[in-house]
Amino acid sequence: MTEYKLVVVGAGGVGKSALTIQLIQNHFVDEYDPTIEDSYRKQVVIDGETCLLDILDTAGQEEYSAMRDQYMRTGEGFLCVFAINNTKSFEDIHHYREQIKRVKDSEDVPMVLVGNKCDLPSRTVDTKQAQDLARSYGIPFIETSAKTRQGVDDAFYTLVREIRKHKEKMSKDGKKKKKKSKTKCVIM
């Protein structure tokens, strides 16, 4: 069974824990209790493949930012979460993405942009803004509501699919490099 290491990042209060708990335990946590770091595991079937999701729910508070490099190193894919009623959390996505790329030393890291709290009427981040940002990053965008469960499975499952595509691409690139290195030079 394939294991996928997913990391949920975003500013404090955007609903990272609520999304994760909704996926794992099928219930909505409405009281806000700032996370330092929590880890969850769940076995699911995605596109006919049974897999184990190892999900790291991270601290959004700035005082825990020193811990970010460590979990970013171990993560295979990242859910970059903002709240649709919090423009600052949307603007912060850029910083999370840049930090992930720096730590992973790669421009090509599996990510999904997630606009959470889409059940709320007080939207300050337009869907088109988020779609445009995701398009500019070359990553999928999904709106979710941890409260109603809308888009929750889709967000995590899409990230797994992005990781699969990335692994497939990397193995193809690896095979191309191996083929090239088999060419021999004969000096007579």
Rank of each mutant, 00 (worst) to 15 (best):
G12T: 10
R102E: 03
N26R: 11
I84G: 14
V112R: 03
K165F: 08
E49R: 10
D33E: 01
V8H: 12
S122H: 08
A11Q: 10
M188T: 08
E49G: 10
V45I: 05
K178E: 09
I46Q: 15
L159Y: 03
G151Q: 04
V160S: 11
R41I: 06
Y96M: 13
Y40F: 00
D132I: 05
I187D: 15
H94R: 15
P34W: 00
K180A: 06
V114D: 02
L53Y: 12
F28S: 01
R161L: 11
K169D: 08
Q131E: 12
Y157Q: 07
H95S: 07
I21D: 01
C118I: 10
V29F: 15
R102I: 04
V45L: 11
K178L: 06
C185L: 03
R97D: 15
A11W: 14
V7D: 01
L133W: 13
K178V: 06
T124G: 10
G13S: 12
E107S: 08
H95D: 15
V9L: 08
P110S: 03
K177I: 07
V152S: 12
Y32C: 01
E3Q: 13
Y96R: 14
K172R: 05
I36Y: 02
N116Q: 11
G13C: 11
K147E: 08
D108A: 09
N116W: 04
I21L: 04
E62H: 03
A11S: 11
G12F: 09
Q129S: 07
K167S: 07
A66W: 15
G15Q: 02
E37M: 15
K42R: 13
L6N: 03
K117F: 15
G48P: 09
K176W: 10
E31N: 02
I139T: 13
R97S: 10
I36E: 00
F156L: 04
L23C: 11
M67Q: 03
S39C: 08
C51Y: 13
T74F: 04
V45R: 13
K165Y: 13
L56R: 10
K117H: 15
Q129E: 13
R123S: 12
D30Q: 08
L53R: 02
V152W: 13
L6F: 08
E98Q: 04
P34Q: 01
I187L: 06
M72W: 07
L6H: 02
K42M: 08
R102W: 14
D108E: 09
D38C: 00
Q99I: 14
R68L: 01
F78W: 06
E76C: 12
Q129P: 13
Y96V: 05
D119G: 11
D126M: 07
D92V: 07
Q70C: 13
T124A: 09
D54M: 14
F141H: 06
M111E: 02
S136A: 14
K104I: 12
C80H: 12
E31H: 02
M67V: 04
K5V: 05
D108W: 04
E31Y: 03
F82S: 13
D119C: 08
S65I: 07
Y96Q: 04
K175N: 08
G151T: 04
V29M: 08
K180N: 03
D153T: 08
S65R: 12
D173S: 09
L53D: 02
K128L: 05
A18P: 01
D30G: 05
S136N: 09
Q129L: 07
E3I: 08
I93F: 09
L79M: 06
Q43D: 11
D132A: 05
A11I: 12
I55W: 01
V81K: 01
P34V: 01
K117V: 15
S17M: 01
Y64P: 01
A59C: 01
I21G: 02
F82P: 02
T74P: 04
Q61Y: 04
A66Y: 11
K101N: 05
D47S: 11
D30V: 05
T58Q: 00
K117W: 15
S65T: 07
L6K: 02
V160M: 10
N116C: 14
L19M: 08
V152I: 08
I55K: 00
V125D: 10
R97Q: 07
E3P: 14
E49V: 10
V103P: 02
K16F: 01
Y4D: 10
I36Q: 01
V186G: 09
R161T: 13
G60H: 00
G48H: 11
Q22P: 00
T158S: 05
L23T: 14
R73A: 10
F156V: 04
Q131P: 11
L19C: 13
L113E: 02
L56C: 14
K104V: 11
V14H: 14
D69C: 05
F28C: 01
H166M: 11
V44E: 08
Q43T: 11
K42G: 02
D54I: 04
A130E: 12
D69K: 05
Y32E: 01
L52Y: 14
K175L: 13
V9D: 04
Y157G: 11
E49Y: 13
L120K: 03
R73E: 08
T87A: 12
L159G: 03
D132F: 09
A66S: 11
V44Y: 09
S17Y: 01
R102Q: 14
Q25T: 15
F156W: 11
Q61M: 09
F28T: 01
Y64H: 01
A66F: 15
V29T: 02
D126A: 06
V186R: 07
G151V: 07
N116T: 13
L6W: 05
K88C: 12
M72G: 05
S106T: 13
Y96N: 13
T50P: 13
D154H: 06
V125F: 08
G13M: 09
T2G: 14
A66C: 15
V125P: 09
K184M: 07
Y40D: 00
V186C: 14
A66L: 09
V9M: 09
A18W: 01
A130Y: 13
Y4L: 12
K5E: 13
Y64C: 01
Y64G: 01
K42D: 03
F156P: 01
T158E: 10
Q22D: 15
Y40T: 00
K5R: 12
I21K: 00
L56F: 03
M72E: 02
D54F: 12
R123Y: 09
M67G: 05
G48N: 09
Y157W: 07
K128T: 06
V109L: 08
H166W: 07
I100V: 11
R97M: 15
Y96W: 14
N86C: 11
R41A: 05
A18Q: 15
R41M: 09
L56E: 12
G75L: 02
E3G: 12
S39D: 02
T158G: 07
A130S: 08
A18K: 01
V7M: 06
M170Y: 10
K88A: 13
K184A: 03
T58M: 00
K184N: 03
Q70G: 13
T74R: 12
V7T: 09
V114L: 09
K169E: 07
Q129T: 11
G15H: 02
A130D: 14
K128Q: 07
L19D: 14
L120C: 12
D119L: 10
D173G: 12
M111F: 10
V8S: 04
Y32M: 01
V7P: 03
D132L: 05
I21Q: 01
L133S: 07
L6V: 13
D57T: 00
G13V: 12
I36L: 01
S89G: 10
I100H: 12
L113K: 02
Y157K: 12
T50M: 12
Y4M: 15
K42T: 07
G13R: 09
V8N: 01
R97N: 07
R161S: 15
H166P: 04
V9Q: 02
R123M: 11
T2K: 11
M72C: 03
D153C: 05
G15K: 14
Q70A: 15
F78L: 02
T35A: 00
K104D: 08
A18F: 00
